[in-house]
């Protein structure tokens, strides 16, 4: 199963509920992806959840992996679709 890590920005002044967005993604990919800690080396993909368009979270540690960035609530649905499409699931 596809292993995904989650990287959050620090959330200084987020324009949407970042944690709720991740819950939505987890639900949308239930049974199709496994969510693992960010430092899990076996993960292939990272979803970076940015609270606003400034998207300031540091992504250096995730350099090797596929990254999907979401910076608004609609990004959660788009991320689900993109991952499903990529994985053909």
């Amino acid at each position: 199963m596809l292993k995904i890590g989650i990287k959050f920005c620090g959330g200084c002044n987020p324009a949407f509920d970042r944690v709720a967005a991740v819950e939505k993604i987890k639900k949308g990919l239930e049974g199709k992806a496994e969510f693992v800690p960010l430092n899990d080396e076996t993960s292939e993909m990272v979803i970076a959840v940015m609270g606003c368009g400034n998207a300031c979270a540091e992504l250096g540690e995730t350099r090797e992996k596929q990254i999907i960035i979401i910076s608004d609530i609609d990004g959660a649905d788009a991320a689900i679709e993109e991952i499903k499409r990529k994985q053909k699931v």
Partner: peptide, 8 residues
């Protein structure tokens, strides 16, 4: 907390 650690 993962949702704050990037700043904290």
């Amino acid at each position: 907390m993962p949702e704050y650690e990037d700043l904290m």
